[in-house]
Design a protein around this nucleic acid. Structure first.
Lengths: 194, 194
DNA sequence: TCAACATACGGAACGCCGTTCCGTTTGCCA
DNA sequence: TGGCAAACGGAACGGCGTTCCGTATGTTGA
């Protein structure tokens, strides 16, 4: 289940009832399809799952990327919100950073194909890429700032996020590749040597 | 330029002259196309560049992956060969490992889209993925063995190679993401803490 | 020199994809 | 209830990798 359009604007132009129903149905169908076949599930499959025409999907979500963003928006927001929380609760800033990155990795690793889509140069996923960076890079930057002194200072938040995202590609497809361990190495490498 | 089929078998079945010419032309055209548009240049473009029909390309290279392997085979072999050489010439085993990884990263980073293709789950690139791992993982394993004691021992060669490959994805597309630096972090994280 | 045959070629055609377009249907309000 | 904006459905388009097969050509033995 993905909840309805409790979106931005106060001036929601009041849409037709069937439109709202379909939007919700589509979000649920997409979420199910993403779990079953990964985020690159064919648009036609999602439409079929929702019992809806192809045209309908595109009126609600102009591009595949918008659909993906809509499906995962809540989890991304939750991840963003966890940053400040961890900073306050965790022992050291570096520990907070490590825990937050773990959260992000857990999220990516459990979404078949999402990491791939995020980094794929494909112009269609530009929106997706942009949304993730927009939302998460500032959070990461705050954590990095807080940990300054404990970690190298030549690494920007955006770079780190992309590195972590990249390491999550292909996770779960080959048991011999453990994305979490690789990210752990990356974060370990971030520490300044005593 | 990519040199001709100085391939395996001693019993090369003697092919027609035009076939040999076309194979060479195709390799050159593919190399040029890969530089111009990345390794995912459309098959039709490569055929057009070579002045050859689509059917011809598929007789010589049953799948895109085979073509990519053929184009880069020499560089991959050179990289594999550099392993033992570095181990003998570099100061410490860890330094040899670091230099060898650098070689690999340089190779990947200068081939637009190759890292992406290598890790893309797409079954069509299975051959490509397999060839790279087959050729380079044993070399990496030897370097890791030599550096044992200096580095963590819970990381296998295959895992490290995939991690490095992943970090190279998207290199060169965004100046704010420096794949080399991320790999440097990963390798730094590999060292045991004193 | 010249068949005749295996080999290799070219490109139309197929299936799958994301996306667009437009004729039809449906909810809503006066 | 009539009419109209809003929303729908799915055929159609362009691009992709790949397959298939009728055609052309190099080779070779007579």
């Amino acid at each position: 289940m993905v909840d309805s359009d409790s979106e931005a604007g106060p001036a929601a132009p009041r849409r037709r009832a069937d439109a709202r129903r379909n939007q919700q149905t589509l979000l649920d169908a997409a979420a199910a399809a993403f779990i079953a076949s990964g985020v690159d599930a064919p648009v036609r499959d999602i439409a079929a799952r929702a019992g809806v025409g192809i045209g309908t999907i595109y009126r609600h979500f102009p591009t595949r990327a918008d659909l993906i963003v809509a499906v995962y928006r809540h989890q991304v927001e939750a991840c963003a919100a966890a940053g400040p929380t961890l900073l306050a609760s965790a022992g050291t800033p570096h520990a907070a950073l490590a825990r937050w990155i773990n959260l992000f990795v857990d999220f990516l690793v459990t979404k078949h194909g999402l990491a791939e889509a995020l980094q794929s140069g494909d112009a269609a996923f530009e929106t997706l890429h942009a949304y993730f960076l927009e939302r998460l890079v500032p959070v990461c930057a705050r954590l990095l700032d807080a940990a300054a002194g404990e970690i190298r200072e030549d690494v920007e938040a955006l770079e780190l996020m992309r590195g972590v995202g990249n390491l999550c590609i292909g996770a779960g497809k080959d048991p011999r590749y453990d994305a979490r361990r690789m990210v752990e190495l990356l974060i370990a490498g971030l520490r300044v040597r005593r």
